[in-house]
Design a protein around this nucleic acid. Structure first.
Length: 433
RNA sequence: AGAGAGGUGGCAGAGUGGUCGAUUGCGGCAGUCUUGAAAACUGUUGACUGUCACAGGUCCGGGGGUUCGAAUCCCUCCCUCUCUACCA
């Protein structure tokens, strides 16, 4: 881990040093309060680290030189001279050991500060601290007019007996629903539909592990930031994934890609697990928030110059899915304060769930610039023959539960729930009755 | 889970205390030859750090130790393979 921390430190501090004022401004935009102080500290620590490193390297170089000389003396049989040389090293060893200790201390201190910094938002990211300040950039579809006795999805699932929360509660706990009959079939249909659409769009299907180790959690930025949000299996020190982004992106941890391999486009279906500690209340009834849910995730890895276009193509892909599902939706550009720790620019997709009369987030498509790549140490060999960090991106395409909620609520009729055409070939039925 | 073997550069595979960051082969890149390709031949080819650039430093699964000096010896953790046991 030493060299890993080291290069992480170097890259980050260099960037911060070169763009000091911009960095502070960007951090503040993301509501990172101690931006000024932290940036100052990083620069100071980095300089001190370099100073110590210079001394340490010199001491080590001297030691290497003497060791080499001793070797030569031994070879030529000059034992006594060699013995004398040996005594010269005692002090040097102490010295370099001390320097190494302070070097490592500095390195760790620097790491501790750097690791707390969120990704820097793009210029295009709106200022703002709360969800109210997100900007609606696109709207599509019209909310259906429901009859007065229209039911929210948590009643519909009982009426048609397709999702059972009590049963899940018995087996696991709250937030672990059991899907039954046509409910289960609908899940499978949606997963297959989403996977097929992504495949058609050029994504390669991946089935990753759904448990990850610490290194992977660090690589995509869930650790140490979101420690408490993941289920942790202490016996084996593994975490249940909160999203397929983690294992699928970590495929490329410690990898140097060839330019021809880019862009990489992967898609994977996995269940996702989130503890959602302390975030329960009336607004998260039914399928609105769960501990376990299904999601199909798309991930791209690109050269920096292609990232923006890739981001746009992901947005278009997600739009097409919602259109095919005939759901009214809108796209929000998240403001600095509402973006995740790791994102540089993020669009949220929300569908309108007509009985709840609420917008529900069903997808978010983010670009991370080099933030994840730096942690992952994922690089590519550029035209200049040098290694550069890649850009990573991902988006949900899509998360199922809220899609299901909206489908159920918006499409309820007196005869039952009528599914959108595109799903019929996957479900084998048109109506949930 | 028990027993054994092993983890070295993109891959294969040497090296068991001293100019080893590492022989060699394959692959990759550049060139010669060729109408072109193949073959053959020649050269080149790890990462991180550091510097204006050199120099220098670190890395042979991770961590620690012995030594003037470790890929090589010791301790420890992790992982892989084979056999046995168990089992979707």
């Amino acid at each position: 881990m030493t060299t890993k921390i080291n290069s992480f430190n170097t890259f980050q501090s260099q960037l911060i040093k070169e763009q000091k004022e911009n960095t502070i401004k960007a951090l503040l935009k993301k509501n990172y309060k101690s931006a000024q102080a932290d940036v100052e500290q990083i620069i100071a620590l980095d300089e001190e680290k370099k100073r110590i490193q210079f001394q340490m390297d010199n001491a080590l170089a001297e030691g290497n030189k003497i060791a080499k000389e001793i070797g030569e003396l031994m070879k030529s049989g000059k034992k006594e001279e060699a013995e004398i040389k040996k005594t010269q090293t005692t002090n040097l060893k102490l010295q370099s050991k001390e320097l190494q200790t302070s070097f490592e201390t500095l390195e760790n201190q620097l790491f501790e500060v750097l690791i707390k910094l969120p990704n820097l938002p793009h210029d295009a990211v709106p200022e703002g601290l709360s969800p109210e300040e997100n900007v609606v950039v696109f709207e599509s579809g019209i909310a259906p007019k429901l009859t007065e006795n229209a039911l929210p999805h948590w009643d519909l699932i009982k009426k048609y007996d397709i999702i059972d929360f009590e049963l899940g509660n018995k087996i696991a706990g709250a937030g672990f629903p059991v899907y039954k009959g046509k409910g289960a079939r609908l899940q499978r249909a949606l997963i297959n539909f989403f996977l097929d659409e992504a495949t058609k769009a050029g994504y390669t299907e991946i089935q990753p592990p759904i448990f990850i180790n610490k290194e992977s959690g660090f690589g995509t930025g869930q650790l140490p930031d979101k420690d408490g949000q993941m289920y942790h299996m202490t016996a084996d020190d593994l975490f249940a994934i909160p999203t397929a982004e983690v294992p699928i992106t970590n495929i490329y941890r410690d990898v140097i890609l060839k330019r021809e391999e880019l862009p990489i486009k992967n898609v994977g279906y996995t269940p996702c697990f989130r503890r959602e500690a302390g975030s329960w209340g009336a607004h998260v009834r039914g399928l609105n928030r769960l501990h376990q849910f299904d999601k199909v995730e798309i991930v791209q890895i690109t050269e920096p110059k292609d990232a923006e276009a890739a981001h746009q193509s992901m947005v278009e892909h997600i739009k097409s899915l919602l259109t095919k599902l005939e759901l009214p939706y809108r796209i929000l550009k998240l403001c600095g304060g509402d973006m995740s720790f790791t994102a540089a620019l993020c669009f949220d997709f929300e569908v309108y769930s007509a009985a709840q009369k609420r917008w529900l987030e069903v997808s978010s498509a983010s670009t991370f610039d080099t933030f994840q790549a730096n942690r992952l140490k994922c690089r590519y060999k550029g035209e200049d023959g040098k290694n550069h960090l890649v850009h990573t991106l991902n988006g949900s395409a899509m998360a199922l539960p809220r899609i299901v909620a909206a489908l159920l609520e918006n499409n309820q009729t007196t005869q039952g729930i009528k599914l959108p055409k595109v799903l019929v070939e996957y479900t084998g039925f048109e109506m949930i009755t």
